[in-house]
């Protein structure tokens, strides 16, 4: 049985809580700590907030030993441009750097996806 999950929801903000609940369900099954769950939810929220439109957005979660891979997309190239730029202050890039272990953007299926990883141990979430 696979622990891979793919959730497709309308990108409107009202539906974002569904993604949080699904992440929570998976975290519960994997016995992640509350703090790790919070970090994951903040990460997914940060990305979902880039979309608030009529189309669909997908959240994919893949479980490996000690690591969770989460992908969110698709995004228009301009929507995630700020993730590429070095910040002088505080923005989405900085939030993701703290709550995730890695994140990168990937162009596939006709859009931009943001792929996150999060170690499923308590030490994760320390500043990078």
């Amino acid at each position: 049985m696979s622990d891979d999950v793919r959730l497709v929801i309308p990108a409107q903000q009202d539906f974002h809580s569904i993604a949080r609940l699904v992440i929570g369900g998976l975290a519960s099954r994997l016995e992640l700590t509350y703090e790790l769950l919070e970090d994951l939810q903040v990460a997914v929220d940060t990305l979902l907030a880039l979309r608030d439109d009529e189309d669909d957005v997908a959240v994919e979660v893949r479980v490996e030993t000690d690591v969770l891979h989460v992908s969110v997309g698709p995004f228009a190239p301009g929507a995630v441009a700020e993730l590429d730029a070095e910040e002088t202050g505080f923005g989405r890039r900085h939030v993701l750097e703290i709550v995730c272990d890695t994140f990168e953007r990937d162009e596939r299926d006709g859009g931009i996806w943001v792929d996150l990883t999060k170690r499923t141990t308590e030490s994760a979430g320390a500043p990078g």
């Binding site: 609940l21 929570g24 369900g25 519960s28």
Partner: peptide
């Protein structure tokens, strides 16, 4: 000495895990 898991929160509060997640949300 660490953050608890959802199953641990559920057990300590006497509630189902799904309800715990819903209450947190």
């Amino acid at each position: 000495g660490r953050s608890p898991t959802i199953p641990e929160l559920a057990e300590a509060s006497g509630a189902e895990e799904e309800l715990v997640l819903e209450a947190l949300e």
